[in-house]
């Protein structure tokens, strides 16, 4: 697996798209800090971007990479290499290079503006950690979609739909059910519903760390009580790991059985 991973990774970090992605984050980071040199405020703005853009790019990039390297994959399949190694290697190559772009692209500007001397280090690392998790999760989901769909157009369609569902539609349904069932106690329901969607979970984790929870009144207090404790924090991390782990396992399972 190491060889394939290394190859994919080097292939990707030499590709144009990785640079564009990296440059985008660099520009974003510098512009944000140029406009507002308050690091903790910049973290909030960054959160809005990360939780929407990172999943989108990971899904698109993941499916694109899978389809584009199909011929190379078939070549590899002809070699005496374990199948799971090929696919997992490719997956970690993509996810790794995307995460690297994210961490470097945002890390460099924030370092340059004195991140280590400010109190925002923890919040910022949490943000980056969550960005990396989202990359892992959505790349894995993208690979799953791509491996299950021979048709490129269909695959892309599903991938975009997946992102749309997680980022927008899920919240819409969530909102509707909150309004419809407002007569009932909704605390447990909303905590579970939040935990089930990695984007919502990431958003809530960051918001609570940034003390916007005070805005949320009673609901915020309940969320803080759950997610704000160490226990809740580790549960959220566990859910995120589960979100990344399950698709990876399915990818492995599928790749072994798939008929090329």
């Amino acid at each position: 697996m190491g060889k394939v991973l290394k190859y994919s990774f080097y292939d990707l970090i030499r590709s144009r798209w990785s640079y564009i992605y990296l440059l985008f984050y660099l520009a974003l980071g510098f512009v944000l800090l140029f406009l507002n040199s308050d690091l903790s405020k910049a973290v909030i703005t960054l959160m809005n971007i990360i939780i929407v853009l990172v999943p989108l790019i990971a899904t698109i990039f993941g499916t694109m990479y899978f389809y584009n390297s199909k011929e190379f994959t078939e070549l590899l399949l002809a070699q005496p290499i374990k199948r799971s190694d090929i696919f997992l290697g490719q997956y970690f190559g993509v996810a790794g290079s995307l995460s690297l772009s994210l961490v470097l692209g945002l890390g460099i500007p924030f370092m340059a503006y004195g991140l280590l001397r400010s109190g925002a280090v923890f919040n910022f690392s949490l943000l980056l950690g969550i960005g990396v998790f989202l990359t892992l999760i959505f790349t894995a989901l993208a690979f799953n979609i791509a491996i299950s769909n021979e048709n490129k157009i269909k695959g892309f369609g599903y991938a975009v739909l997946l992102w749309l569902f997680m980022a927008v539609i899920y919240d819409g349904i969530f909102l509707l059910s909150l309004i419809l069932f407002e007569e009932y106690p909704l605390d447990t329901f909303s905590i579970i519903a939040t935990a089930l969607n990695p984007i919502d979970l990431s958003r809530t984790l960051i918001l609570l760390k940034l003390d916007i929870s005070a805005l949320m009144g009673y609901t915020g207090a309940i969320f803080k009580k759950f997610f704000g404790t160490h226990w809740g924090f580790w549960i959220s991390i566990f859910v995120l790991i589960l979100w990344a782990g399950l698709p990876i396992l399915r990818l492995r399972y599928k790749s072994i059985r798939k008929d090329f």
Binding site: I51, I169, F174, L178, S190, I212, L215, G217, T219, G220
Partner: peptide, 11 residues
């Protein structure tokens, strides 16, 4: 009031 947890979401 519970819907406030959707604060700052894209939706």
């Amino acid at each position: 009031p519970e819907t406030i947890i959707l604060l700052r979401s894209l939706f």
